[in-house]
Design a protein around this nucleic acid. Structure first.
Length: 434
DNA sequence: CGTCCACAGGAATCCCTGGGTT
DNA sequence: AACCCAGGGATTCCTGTGGACG
């Protein structure tokens, strides 16, 4: 009978634990734009105040928006785009491109006086002048191949279709710094001064970036044009993050009671440490919830949040290392092998000699030291390595390289690669300190 | 105080891929 | 088929440099 009793309890337990915590995880995704944007009222008003000239039939000033990642820049701009289009009475349209990559559901056309277009572009994906112009051209119904044409032809086609009728085009360039990176600020220059050549159409640009130094590297002419209006998004503090997270948590969970009281504050505190990144807070919360569900826990607890914090970092490392090109893997592996002997920092030269041996052993192509130097810098930017330029006086200048992630873990992931596996038995020549 | 190491890192160029036009 | 074009990775050639050593 005791047995019976127990199994009945278990039955309920099981039923209860089968009920999931989340009912809608969508709202926790980065791509989701909520209707309410807490603690961004001021920024919304600022942007709106500039764009209001649309209603007076004027061309709004160009806007430059900057702030760290996860401070709501993109969300605010999209939000306003939506509101703007709604107000004018336009209809949202979405368009699937041939590469069916971007479906901009917040771009819009109205038929009031003349059409207003609100176009959102993420320059992380559309990151060269050719691609940007081609993409813009596509919006206006031009069919431009993904590659092949000379750029000036792409520009001309874009320009002439744009100017075919009277219209106002607001172009949002998110992650605009990507366009500058490696190369041409030509597009920006052309786009910012396109108005002087246009007869019918008008263009205004909203540039978004999280790179605060970005402006300094801009061509002065572009800078002054793009920065007609500047709007700064300060990082959220822990309290503000709590508000944001609470709002989303309510939407995503079956019941707010499934969340321990410490959970939201803890997520927010962690995120606040990382320059107030709201995305981070959302990620932490989502992963914590997923972990809770996985272990059939009825509630999300602070323990889950702490686990989530590790989990996210681990996942990132595994993902990044796993998808590295083979040359980068070989370089990283060289660093790992050397790290044992020189934990205080490895030099580029040392890495290169080991790397060369590894290449021979795995019959890979040997790249030049110049290139390896760049690869090391790339790994540094990914946070997998820490490379600092130091001068050792009489003994030259070099990068002092350390591991940026746990060695054993990185090693394990690298050795999943067949080519790396083949060189796993290699032992670097013994280094001696001076 | 000047030298000189061991590279850093910029610039021009090449090579290759995927796609165009004639 | 012959030739042009953009863009990304790589090479070649190069000038620049912080500071310990002598």
């Amino acid at each position: 009978m005791m047995n019976n009793q127990k199994s009945l309890d278990c039955l309920f337990d099981e039923l209860l634990s089968n009920e999931r915590i989340f009912i809608n995880k969508e709202v926790l995704r980065h791509s989701y734009t909520p209707d309410q944007l807490p603690h961004r009222q001021r920024q919304i008003e600022e942007v709106a105040a500039i764009l209001v000239s649309v209603f007076k039939g004027e061309t709004p000033s160009n806007i430059f928006v900057y702030g760290k990642t996860g401070t709501g820049k993109t969300a605010v701009v999209k939000h306003i785009g939506k509101a703007l289009v709604k107000k004018i009475g336009g209809k949202f349209f979405s368009k699937t491109f041939r590469d069916n990559n971007i479906v901009p559901d917040y771009s819009a056309v109205t038929d009031n006086d003349y059409p207003v277009w609100f176009i959102y572009m993420n320059c992380e994906i559309v990151d060269t002048q050719y691609r940007l112009l081609a993409k813009l051209g596509e919006y206006f119904g031009q069919s431009i191949p993904l590659t092949g044409w000379p750029t000036d032809k792409v520009y001309d086609t874009f320009f002439s279709t744009l100017d075919r009728e009277k219209r106002l085009v607001i172009i949002v360039l998110d992650e605009i710094d990507r366009l500058l990176r490696k190369g041409s600020d030509e597009v920006l220059y052309n786009l910012t001064r396109v108005n002087s050549d246009l007869v019918n159409a008008r263009v205004s640009i909203i540039g978004i970036t999280n790179d605060l130094n970005f402006i300094e590297f801009l061509d002065p002419r572009v800078r002054s044009s793009l920065g007609e209006e500047e709007i700064v998004f300060p990082p959220y503090d822990a309290i503000q993050l709590q508000d944001i997270l609470t709002q989303r948590a309510k939407m995503s969970c079956r019941s707010i009671n499934l969340i321990d009281t410490g959970v939201v504050p803890l997520c927010s505190a962690y995120a606040a440490q990382e320059h107030g990144d709201a995305r981070r807070a959302l990620d932490l919360f989502r992963v914590a919830g997923e972990l809770a569900e996985r272990e059939k826990s009825k509630r999300i607890t602070e323990k889950h949040v702490r686990e989530a914090k590790d989990h996210i970092e681990q996942d990132r490392i595994v993902e990044v290392v796993k998808t590295l090109p083979i040359q980068s893997k070989l370089v990283l592996y060289s660093c790992i092998l050397l790290e044992k002997y020189e934990p205080s920092g490895i030099s580029t030269g040392e890495v290169y000699t080991v790397y060369r041996d590894l290449c021979k052993l795995s019959s890979s192509e040997i790249l030049t030291q110049r290139r390896i130097s760049d690869i090391i810098s790339e790994l540094d930017m990914l946070g997998i390595l820490n490379a600092k330029v130091v001068s050792k006086g009489r003994y030259g200048r070099t990068k002092e390289i350390r591991m940026g992630v746990p060695v054993t873990q990185a090693k394990r992931v690298l050795e999943l690669d067949r080519k790396i596996e083949r060189v796993a038995t290699y032992v670097p020549p013994i280094q001696h300190k001076l």
